[in-house]
Design a protein around this nucleic acid. Structure first.
Lengths: 147, 147
DNA sequence: GTAGCTGCAAATCATTTGCATAACC
DNA sequence: GGTTATGCAAATGATTTGCAGCTAC
C-alpha cells in the first residue's frame, strides 16, 4: 500500500472517530482496497476484490462502507448509465471529468481548470455556491469513428 | 397543445413509421403530455399525468414509450441521484445544464455556449467526437446558504 | 458492558420481461 | 391477417433493511 493510500485510510479513521463510529477490520480492508484503485469501480467489483483478501466480508458491508466513504468526502458516486452506481476515490485536489464512448464504452478521464473556473462563475451568477460537479461528454472515440 | 408540441409529436410519428413501428393512441397521449413539459420528469410522474387523460394506460407503456422517445432523440435521460431516472424533452438546439442544491433539491437550468465550446475542444484533443454532454453543478442555492 | 457493526436472508424500489389479448397497417 | 402493442403479473437487478450474534471502545 502506497503512502497516499495509508494517508487516506487514516483520514477515514479520523472521520469514524469524530463521528462516534467504530474502526473495524472490515472497514480497513475495504478502504485500503478502494484507495488503491486508480479508476471507478462498482460495489460488486469492489466486493470481488475485497473477497480475495478476506472472503468473510459480505457485499452488504461493502455497500455500507462505500456510503460512509462518500459521506466522509473520500469517495464520489457516479452514474454513467447501465443502472449501476460507480465509485471513485476522491483525491482532495483533483477533480476530473469523463469522456465516454457510447459505442465501445471506453471512459477517458480529463481535467480542465478553465472549465471549472467558468462553472464557478456561472454558479455565482445564479446565487449558488458550488461544492462539486459532474461533467460527462458522450461521443465516439477515435477508434470507433473509423468504423 | 402548442405548436411545437404538435411538431414534436409529428416527429415522433415519423420516427415510428420509419422504423416499422406503430402509431398508437397511447403513444400519442404519452408523447403529447411529455412534450408539454418544461422540466424533467420521472416515469412515475409522467404516468400519473398521463393517467388523468386516460386511466387505462399502464406504467409499463410509459416506460416503453420513454425509451422509444430517447432512441428517437426526442428525450434525454438524466440521473440526478436518488435512484430514479428523469427524462426531459429534447428541444433540437437547446442544450442546458443543471445547478442542483444539495440541501433543498432545487434544480436550476442554465446554458453556456462558452463552456460548450471548450468541451468540444477538449474532446477533440482526446480524439473524441462528442454528441451529447451532461454537466451538473452541486452546491447550495442562495436561500440555503443563508441558513 | 454497551453502542455500534457484521452477515445473512428477506425486503424494497425502479425498471424489465413473458404472455395472452387487442390494435394498427 | 399478421405483426407489433398493450397491460397485467411476475421477474429482475441493484441497493437497503431487520435482526441475532459479534466486536470495538
Amino acid at each position: 500500500m502506497g503512502r497516499s493510500v495509508l494517508g487516506r485510510v487514516a483520514k477515514f479513521n479520523n472521520y469514524l472517530a469524530a463521528n462516534g463510529l467504530k474502526s473495524t477490520r472490515q472497514r480497513h480492508i475495504i478502504a485500503g482496497v478502494f484507495f488503491s484503485l486508480k479508476k471507478h469501480i462498482s460495489a460488486e467489483e469492489l466486493y470481488e476484490r475485497v473477497s480475495k483478501r478476506d472472503s468473510s466480508i459480505g457485499l452488504v458491508t461493502v455497500y455500507r462502507t462505500l456510503k460512509l466513504l462518500t459521506k466522509a468526502g473520500l469517495a464520489k458516486e457516479r452514474q454513467f448509465g447501465g443502472g449501476k452506481a460507480r465509485f471513485e476515490p476522491a483525491l482532495p485536489d483533483t477533480h476530473h471529468d469523463h469522456l465516454i464512448c457510447t459505442e465501445c464504452g471506453t471512459i477517458v478521464e480529463f481535467e480542465s481548470a478553465k472549465i471549472e473556473k467558468m462553472q464557478t462563475e456561472l454558479a455565482n451568477e445564479h446565487g449558488f455556491r458550488v461544492f462539486d460537479h459532474k461533467l460527462e461528454l458522450y461521443g465516439l472515440c477515435s477508434a470507433c469513428q473509423q468504423r
